[in-house]
Design a protein around this nucleic acid. Structure first.
Lengths: 155, 155
DNA sequence: CTGCAAGTTAAAGCGCACTTCAGATCAAGG
DNA sequence: CCTTGATCTGAAGTGCGCTTTAACTTGCAG
């Protein structure tokens, strides 16, 4: 029936557009064989990779980071359950971290702004900003560490 | 001493680059007065707005959405504690949602991939993808709310 | 064998959230 | 005063994660 999947199949089954799949391939996140006519044919195990990619993205991980993670999978053989389990374990702790961050965020928000006191100078959400002031360029994305910033601020 | 803040002051205190502050102003997220020499001078209450913006961003909210939220604050008077508290309450539930999403994500990851069964077709993480297949363009960022939003910027 | 959907490529475009640049002006300490 | 560093503007550039376009080729149902 389907030893391999066409790009359309994979797209339909993964929910990722063909153009995105080609893009992922260019970045080295997934691989594809070719027919004699140069069309892509995916092994079913690639579906797993795509799923992983989407999941990781939902957690806010860049494709580059995902690539690095996927690079830890064996290239020669089809990744085993164990291989994936290892990867998953690593991501699980990542998720735990993010969840912890968001939880702190929520509590701090409620505490700092929600209460109306708006004592932003002492807020653990707000203060990191002071520390970040000296930062380099680039978009400062989310999910920075809790930062033990001793926070000092003016009068 | 400091009835108002220069853009440099605000940048230092908020941890947001001056260029970003000007950008926020263009988008209507913050406001500034001007000196006779045309330099920006910020009221101290703007610091609060900037803090809010950064916090919201960390939760994965777009500037456009943040602008909408900030629009709910009174324009004529300096927002009161109550105004901010209302806003915060709304965001708190947002955070609750995100936390819930991530938690489900984590559990599903462990269940779907971590276990090795990899029955992705039945996975609640994986399946949404099928629904997303027909999606529009643009970078699909993380952490969007389940939102009954008619907009299609999702996932 | 034919027709047409589905696939191929490289290159360009897009939306977001900014940053960088150039060239000019402002503000304030010595 | 004068210099020096901060600030001003508009326009262009950047990086990510894709999508779109154009021009062409494949592959399979009939």
């Amino acid at each position: 029936m389907h030893e391999s999947l066409t790009i359309g199949d994979l797209a339909a089954r993964s929910g990722v557009a063909p153009s995105a799949l080609r893009y992922y391939e260019r970045l080295g996140l997934i691989r594809a064989g070719r027919t004699t006519g140069n069309q892509r044919r995916y092994e079913r195990s690639e579906l797993r990779r795509v799923s992983f990619i989407r999941i990781a993205q939902q957690v806010g991980v860049s494709l580059e980071e995902i690539r690095e993670a996927l690079d830890s999978l064996p290239e020669s053989r089809t990744p085993s359950k164990g291989d994936w389990a290892q990867l998953s374990a690593r991501w699980r702790s990542r998720l735990d971290e993010k969840i912890g961050l968001l939880t702190r965020l929520r509590d701090d928000l409620t505490g700092c702004i929600g209460c109306g006191c708006l004592s932003l100078q002492r807020c653990s959400l707000y203060n990191p900003a002071d520390a970040l002031a000296a930062e380099g360029a680039g978009p400062r994305i989310l999910l920075r560490a809790p930062a033990p910033v001793p926070a000092r601020t003016e009068s």
